[in-house]
Amino acid sequence: MSEQRFIIEMGMGNDQYGEDYTKAAARAIEDAIRHSAIPMFEVTGISHEAMRVQVTVGVARPEAVDCAVLAEKLPRGRAEVRAVEGGLNVVNPDTGRVLVVATAAVEAFLPKQG
């Protein structure tokens, strides 16, 4: 059965002090979904489990992101998270400390409706 994308939200998050790519990615995902409300599930009776949620996070070091931890935090649907090269590392020239900036795209899909 084919699917239709019905939501795409974008967000940005960062970790200013810990150089934690998973934390920055989690904040980007939270930013993307924080402003969303989807009343269609209540109105139509479609189960949240019918929804596939595909998340792509961009960070400078994708191998440093724990995608399984991020998928577990998503509140609805069957979540898939992947990390790709993107985002931004900003280095403080005085301290050498790295500020990690992550971006996220959260997409939701449902089986094609009749």
Rank of each mutant, 00 (worst) to 15 (best):
R78T: 04
A108N: 08
P62Y: 04
A79I: 03
Q16C: 08
E107P: 02
I33F: 05
R61A: 09
G18V: 07
G13E: 00
E80S: 04
S36M: 10
G87W: 10
F109Q: 12
L99M: 06
R97Y: 13
V57A: 05
A25L: 04
I29C: 08
P111G: 05
A105K: 11
G11W: 04
V55I: 07
P62H: 09
A102E: 02
G58P: 06
G96H: 05
M1S: 05
L88V: 05
E9S: 05
H48C: 04
T103Q: 01
A104Y: 07
R76S: 05
E19V: 11
A64R: 15
E107R: 05
A25P: 03
E19Y: 14
A105G: 03
G96A: 01
N89G: 04
G87V: 13
P75G: 08
M12F: 01
M1I: 02
V57N: 03
E72H: 11
A32K: 10
N89V: 12
N92T: 10
E63T: 12
I7A: 10
V59Y: 14
F41S: 03
P93I: 07
N89H: 15
G96P: 06
L110M: 02
A64N: 11
M10R: 12
E107Q: 14
K23W: 09
V91C: 09
A28W: 00
M51R: 00
A37H: 15
E42V: 06
N14P: 00
V43L: 13
A26M: 11
V43F: 14
G18F: 03
H48S: 06
R97C: 09
V81K: 08
E85W: 11
I46R: 00
R76N: 06
V53P: 03
I8T: 14
V53M: 03
V106Q: 07
D20L: 01
T44H: 02
R5E: 13
V101K: 08
L74W: 08
R76K: 10
Q4S: 15
R82A: 01
M1L: 07
S47V: 00
P75S: 12
S2K: 15
E107I: 09
M51K: 01
G58E: 07
V69H: 12
V65A: 08
K112S: 14
L74Y: 08
V90S: 06
G86K: 10
R61Q: 12
E85H: 15
H35T: 07
T22P: 08
A26N: 13
R5D: 10
A26Y: 11
A25C: 07
V106L: 09
